[in-house]
Design a binder for these strands. Structure first.
Length: 222
DNA sequence: AATAGGGGCAACCGCCCAACA
DNA sequence: GTGTTGGGCGGTTGCCCCTAT
């Protein structure tokens, strides 16, 4: 797929990444780490916004990513996790090493959504109204915008109540641990979707920090 | 052989939150 | 307490490919 390259009014390039851009980004992060996404493209010699660099790195360039077809097991896992979590793709991705939230989200919308709906319909008795898999999600237990899932302090309690009291939720399979271990649910599992990525943090050698100090000078100059 | 339409997926957009000054 | 900034996330868009007609 080749998306037509374009630039916005600030000269920031948009569209498909070229192999040259990928190489620049990989080379830079491998050497210096992603110490600041906003400034990184300037130092890496890329005419991209920081968000674009971050997305490209996280979804396609970072190591240990699985590419290609999903296994049957992976698809089953996605369906089950989605049944419990709803559209919390980052949390789902955190349970699937090597897969990214964007990739899982795409795969869901293109393949698994229909399948999941068909399965739920086929499993529904005739006199029962089918329930859309995403109709009950953890996020919907929050009352206001400040109670979004990532608003940890107040919403953890609500979320925990939702799950510890939700005996009606089907937790019959290997995901029963979600219900059994409330510390897990209230702690790292739900609200720390990504493990801390320190694999590309710059080593504590002075030379590797030079971009950081350069960045400070740069920001003072601008 | 031509082409219309849907599928697949990379990338962007906009919002939210936490950290910090 | 308030404003700013960077990072993270889910939703959506847009373009190419494939297939049916």
């Amino acid at each position: 797929m080749v998306r037509t390259p374009s630039c916005d009014k600030n000269g920031v390039k948009k569209g498909t990444w070229t192999p040259e851009e990928d190489k620049k980004l990989v080379d830079y992060i491998t050497r210096y780490g992603h110490w600041n996404w906003r400034l990184l493209p300037k130092f890496a010699g890329l005419a991209r916004c920081g968000k674009s660099c971050r997305l490209r790195w996280l979804n396609y360039l970072r190591p240990n990513l699985k590419r290609g077809n999903y296994t049957k097991e992976e698809e089953e896992t996605i369906i089950k996790l989605h049944r419990h979590m709803g559209n919390r793709w980052s949390a789902i991705a955190a349970q699937m090493p090597g897969r990214t939230d964007n990739e899982i989200k795409n795969h869901w919308h293109t393949n698994l959504k229909k399948r999941s709906q068909q399965e739920s319909l086929s499993n529904t008795p005739k006199d029962q109204v089918p329930i859309e898999p995403t109709s009950i999600t953890p996020s919907q237990s929050f009352n206001t915008t400040q109670d979004s899932p990532s608003s940890q302090s107040s919403s953890n309690i609500t979320l925990c109540k939702t799950f510890t009291n939700s005996q009606s939720l089907a937790l019959e399979d290997e995901f029963a641990f979600l219900d059994a271990d409330t510390d897990l649910v209230c702690g790292n599992f739900w609200f720390e979707p990504y493990m801390l990525d320190i694999s590309y943090f710059p080593p504590s050698e002075p030379e590797y920090f030079s971009p950081f100090f350069d960045a400070q000078l740069w920001s003072y100059d601008n």
